[in-house]
Design a protein around this nucleic acid. Structure first.
Length: 300
DNA sequence: GGCAGTCAAGTACGC
DNA sequence: GCGTACTTGACTGCC
């Protein structure tokens, strides 16, 4: 079990998610932004090695507008050495890496334009991991998509579109249960037809499920990950008190997290903490997990 | 320097 | 059919 947090670090003074308005697009702006983002990503990796946090989600904004038609610059070639170096650093230090396209990426969209843009975005995110030379255990996670008034037909469309994807994308794609539309049970139906691995989002499962116990779910989902996919990934967060149901908490709740570690025994997984204060809660989680035989904080 | 409104992209839902 | 909520960090224009 590696522990990590998503995308940005609040204490190192840079962000790998620098972007700009579409109206401000220029090649100069694009190049300087990507260069700064990549430099910041290296800083975050270094910080994480020093703090024993070996699971990192890379931000979708690393290369702004990468999948947009406005971006015609061959950034893959231009930055290939930098990506390569980042990848070597990740491998040397035993990192697990993931990416998570946002809500606009819908593999089951009935609209052809939405589908095409979604696939373009998946191609971009996949290519980042490919350029870094990471193996198949580095994943791109999405939700199953929309319902569009007919869930069965929408799941059929997911399966169809998934099957037609470039193998390079398919090798990295995994799906995650969401808090409203597609539960773990729904994802398992899609898995049966595609063999796509399933990420468990513990918080979403609490909000959208038939109450299947954690151990039962982990047991089933672990089997959807092949050896070359790496350990299963799990997203963890908790409810922000006083906010709308589903709102992510600002800080980790130590008692809940300790309980989760106990309840998830004996399953092993890499854990992504979707908590707003990022590396701060991740450090606390590490402390709470100290002594857990599953925990890994440095390259072996 | 600080603040409020806005931002490439989509869907679901209430009225 | 239309407007709004969802989610969220960063940009941008205005004071």
């Amino acid at each position: 079990m590696r522990i990590g947090y998503p995308c940005i670090n609040r204490s190192i003074g840079c962000t790998p998610s620098m972007t700009f308005r579409l109206a401000s697009y220029s090649e100069e702006r694009f190049l300087s932004t990507v260069a700064a983002n990549l430099a910041c990503l290296q800083k975050i990796l270094t910080y994480n090695v020093e703090h024993g946090l070996l699971f990192l989600r890379i931000t979708s904004d690393l290369v702004p507008f990468a999948s947009h038609e406005v971006c015609t610059f061959p950034w893959q070639e231009h930055f290939s050495d930098t990506f390569h170096d980042l990848g070597v650093y990740c491998r040397d230090h035993g990192f697990r890496i993931s990416m998570h396209p946002d809500q606009f990426v819908l593999l089951n969209a009935p609209d052809e334009g939405v589908l095409r843009r979604s696939i373009d975005e998946l191609a971009y995110q996949t290519s980042v991991l490919d350029l870094m030379g990471l193996d198949r255990a580095a994943k791109v996670q999405i939700h199953a998509g929309g319902v569009y008034g007919d869930k069965a037909a929408s799941m059929d469309r997911f399966v169809e579109n998934y099957t037609r994807l470039d193998p390079a994308i398919r090798a990295r794609l995994v799906i995650e249960n969401d808090e409203r539309l597609y539960s773990v049970a729904d994802c398992r139906v899609i898995h049966q037809r595609t063999k796509i691995p399933i990420i468990l989002d513990v918080f979403h499962h609490a909000l959208n499920s038939q109450g299947e116990p954690l151990a039962e779910v982990l047991s089933a989902l672990s089997k959807t990950w092949k050896k070359y996919d790496g350990l299963p990934m799990v997203d963890y967060s908790s409810q922000q008190q006083g906010k709308r149901q589903g709102a992510h908490a600002e800080h980790i709740v130590p008692e809940d997290f300790t309980l989760f570690l106990q309840d998830s025994q004996p399953f092993d997984y890499d854990l992504m903490l979707e908590i707003k204060d990022k590396e701060k809660s991740a450090a606390l989680a590490l402390a709470l997990a100290a002594g857990d035989p599953r925990l890994v904080t440095r390259a072996v």
